[in-house]
Design a protein around this nucleic acid. Structure first.
Lengths: 337, 337
DNA sequence: CAGTCGGATGAGAGCGCTCCCGGGGTCGTG
DNA sequence: CACGACCCCGGGAGCGCTCTCATCCGACTG
């Protein structure tokens, strides 16, 4: 379309063309491109010059066809659109995963599986044919996909401890420990009637954070939400109705804590004087609620990096190393507790 | 590794194997897979059966090699990690783009170009060889990349009106109109001394929102920020020092408005009684500031969809349709103005 | 000086797919 | 009954690359 010298059409130059220009064989060019040591300095330079002059870029598809590697890895998010953009958590993970991958010259294919039909399509899609491995975010408890993938030979690392321990590597924040720290802090502050608003129990963070709560106060009053703001408000209303004497609430997410805060205010309770509130995630909204939210910070960026590290290790070393990494959390004190 | 009948190793079944099993030729299987009409019902059924039994999945690389199409498109975000996850805007765009792409059976490759060296790498990477087209997010004014890509034959659609009109399609929210609506509203409410906190002027939204402000009040007091919270606070301080008599502020982003709110409160001003504040983006934080922020909503999801639509049109119809779409914004009233 | 060793090199053989061509069957028509 | 029109269909060619192997050449050894 642009130039049609000979009959090769507009397309980018090929290995063969570079070889011709440099006066060497295809093999040599390939060796240079892939950084093999078995090339004489003279040849290497000639090839390099030709590459620069022609603006040669290796054809990914051709390479993938023979190497059986696509050099791209999938980042799969199982989440409704709504939550995906409501949760700063995802953005930060995506961000950190991306930067590691770019440095390694790998492509990041983002897949958001929300609607059931997208789910199904995705399942067919995730083959060794298409990606070298997969990073799974916010998998729900009973989801069979991780197992399916592993079975198909697609190396996988997930974020969040699986509900049922299996052969799958994962990276997680210490949800339980973080929750424990938060609730312990409430106890130290002299709170005596501590309730909790939990996340979905079929979710690793939901469960872990609840367990941490129980570790400290045992069977306290609990209402469940879905990590979202509305659900937090509803849970808080329920708690207020059934346990009006509570003097502290530990919410398993900042969004739920924010919802709870509003209900608390409407009910005439002062925070933190009458009721202390602690959230989880240390998200942006935590700094903007009234009062600012004391919250549990998780090292999200580090988690992303670690996930990639584990996956790449799995890809390189053939032996299927099943590894788990649990990263520490930290309580960030603000005004609400 | 699983089965080694003949010497074909563990790999997924190939077209040829499907053909053999169905008792037809490669061509016929290919026709079935690609939905050609030129296949007898009998053959089609036989092939379909074989595909199901073998669990055949076409090899993307092989197909790409011959069709010269990768069936994947890049979503490029030019933004520091920090802003990427601070801005709900991106998450929502990503989300909506993703869902359209999945429906069309296209892969979304997310690239975040922050550090300069990542920038450079990306430039080499974005070839027709690797993706069929690119969606560009938050390009800065003087960035040559869009032009480079277009020149290399990579169809491109960007979000945000380019600083210098060029041959590139774009989708944008009506930043100028939205700003105009916001500032007009302030005027209607009887505000007489309206300042603005602008975004980066080398950015389409930054510029557009400032222009909208000027459309209504002309040369009012302006301080510039970078869309982030801290910069909003600093800008507000500057404004308060130099224009203590101001009675309204229009900030070009919610985050900056949030920063401004804090400074205003510290300075003893009541919002909205003494000073009205309006933000832009209608983001999550807008609902959680004190008071909740009146803000300009932009139809982010729709923008994402529209970007994909334009890009696909460009890919299909060969003629390079340079199109632009500007989507309307809407003022959302809350407590701050 | 013959023999040997090893590094550099060129080229053949595919990887799995689509495209296209030509053969053969079926049907309708003169 | 013969001939063309129209479908279906099989398989060769080739996309651009890597890998393997045989070859070649210079250097080193005995």
């Amino acid at each position: 379309m642009r130039d049609q010298h000979s009959n090769r059409s507009a397309g980018r130059p090929t290995l063969e063309e570079v070889a011709a220009r440099a006066g060497v064989g295809r093999g040599t060019v390939s060796r240079v491109v892939n950084g093999s040591a078995q090339v004489s300095p003279r040849a290497r330079e000639a090839v390099q010059t030709a590459i620069d002059e022609l603006g040669y870029v290796p054809n990914r598809a051709a390479r993938a066809l023979v190497t059986q590697r696509t050099d791209s890895i999938a980042l799969v998010v199982f989440e409704s659109g709504e939550r995906f953009f409501a949760e700063p958590f995802f953005g930060r993970i995506v961000q950190s995963v991306s930067s590691v991958l770019v440095a390694r010259n790998l492509q990041m294919v983002l897949m958001i599986a929300q609607a059931p039909e997208e789910r199904r399509q995705l399942e067919g899609y995730l083959t060794r044919q298409h990606v070298d491995g997969a990073l799974l975010l916010s998998v729900h408890g009973d989801d069979p996909l991780p197992a399916v993938l592993e079975e198909r030979g697609v190396p996988t690392v997930r974020a969040g401890r699986p509900a049922h321990p299996g052969p799958i590597s994962f990276v997680d924040a210490d949800n339980r420990g973080g929750a424990r720290a938060a609730v312990s802090y409430l106890v130290e502050q002299g709170r005596r009637y501590i309730a909790t608003i939990t996340g979905p129990m079929d979710t690793a963070p939901g469960l872990g954070r609840y367990q941490g709560y129980r570790d400290v106060v045992g069977d306290g009053p609990a209402a469940s939400g879905d990590f979202g703001e509305i659900s937090g408000a509803m849970a808080m209303e329920w708690l207020l109705t059934n346990h009006p004497q509570l003097d502290a609430v530990f919410a398993a997410s900042d969004m739920m804590a924010a919802g709870a805060l509003q209900v608390l205010r409407r009910s005439g309770r002062r925070v933190p004087e009458d009721v202390a509130v602690i959230g989880f995630d240390d998200s942006v909204v935590a700094r903007h609620t009234q009062p600012p939210l004391t919250s549990v910070y998780q090292p999200v960026e580090q988690m992303g990096q670690e996930m990639v590290r584990l996956l790449l290790a799995k890809l390189d070393g053939e032996e299927p190393v099943e590894r788990e990494t649990v990263l520490p959390t930290r309580l960030i004190l603000r005004g609400s507790a």
